[in-house]
Design a protein around this nucleic acid. Sequence first.
DNA 1: CAGTATCCATTTGGATACTG
DNA 2: CAGTATCCAAATGGATACTG
Lengths: 128, 128
Amino acid sequence: MDELDQLVPDVFARDCASRPVLEHVAGRWAILALAALREGTFRFNALRRRVDGVSEKMLAQTLQTLERDGFVHRRAEPTIPPKVEYSLTPLGEETADKLADLIEFVEARLPDVLAARQAYDEARAAHA
Amino acid sequence: MDELDQLVPDVFARDCASRPVLEHVAGRWAILALAALREGTFRFNALRRRVDGVSEKMLAQTLQTLERDGFVHRRAEPTIPPKVEYSLTPLGEETADKLADLIEFVEARLPDVLAARQAYDEARAAHA
DNA sequence: CAGTATCCATTTGGATACTG
DNA sequence: CAGTATCCAAATGGATACTG
């Protein structure tokens, strides 16, 4: 085992337990939900408005998975109407920081990506 | 607009162009492929063995998308049998570093996640 | 070797209706 | 308000077979 293997020991193994967790936090809606929750505590519908485009179903599902894995804290007041608040756990905060870092980076480099795409598409169109 | 909004300006908007890019690099197989390519240049089947569990179809699809977006460089030698080598572009390296950071973190905290799951499941089983 | 093509199972996602 | 339940369409993903 060389030094690089030691950095990321076994995600590359099919049955590594961390793979599903990675998919949970890096999922399409999970990334955005976690990043949004860095801004503070959100109620369900407020978060749904913040994460534009997510359906009730997917947000509920995403939040449940993140809660179960310990990234998100859910606090429900047994009132009528119900009031449920979502926030990051300490683990979730650390994770969300890394995701926000990734998001920032991708946004900053978006022009590069768009340029690469155009070059790729034009090269393909040329010898087609 | 407050300071937090400025950190991640508009990924939260449904039609933000960076969302698809984020999904491309954070996809189930893209994360692993990019992390694997930090170790060096890989031929298609070598990479497929490294990213255990990925199908030919998904690896090909993932690599094409990453190449088009400018994260991966593809170098094909027109020999028989064909020899194709994949490596990270500078943009891909920066991205892969951030992803590897996330992977390491998730692996390190895996015990916490498993503990959280158990607590969550037991709490639900209790009042069921 | 490096893919592409095809078929099929699973998952995802949206719309709608309903409940405490 | 904060969900759950249901139904359905569409996208995703995997196994296999085939090609230059």
